[in-house]
């Protein structure tokens, strides 16, 4: 998937290897070994990063987050997609587009 494509609910997401992650005061801070760039994922972003250690669909991800956090699934989905698109632009995740079957 390219960074300009819209992520759909059945698309599968997994994080890429090669990042050093550390917890700092409840937030996750990360360094990409490949690019040398540093990132702050924040607390919610850090939880998403944990969840995508194993491949799962966007829909599954939203369901888990909506169960853990005080957020409506629809609004959660919009914000998670925006976050994942940024991760994709930074080449930090892989997304497998669903075949639609």
């Amino acid at each position: 998937m390219t960074a300009s494509t819209q992520i759909n609910t059945n698309d599968r997401v997994i994080r890429k290897e090669g990042n050093l992650v550390s917890d700092m005061g409840g937030e996750k801070v990360m360094m990409s070994i490949t690019s040398g760039k540093y990132y702050n994922l924040g607390s919610t972003g850090g939880r998403i990063w944990e969840l995508i250690a194993e491949e799962q669909t966007l829909d599954q991800l939203i369901q888990v987050l909506a169960a853990e956090y005080d957020i409506e699934p629809e609004r959660c989905g919009e914000q998670v997609v925006s976050f994942l698109e940024h991760l994709l632009r930074e080449d930090l995740i892989d997304i497998t587009v669903s075949s639609g079957v």
Binding site: K37, Y38, L41, G42, Y69, D70, Q79, F83, H86
Partner: peptide
């Protein structure tokens, strides 16, 4: 028991 939601944001840090 649900945690407070904060919109996830990826902050690129300038070292």
């Amino acid at each position: 028991e649900k945690k407070e939601w904060q919109a996830p944001v990826l902050e690129v840090l300038d070292v």
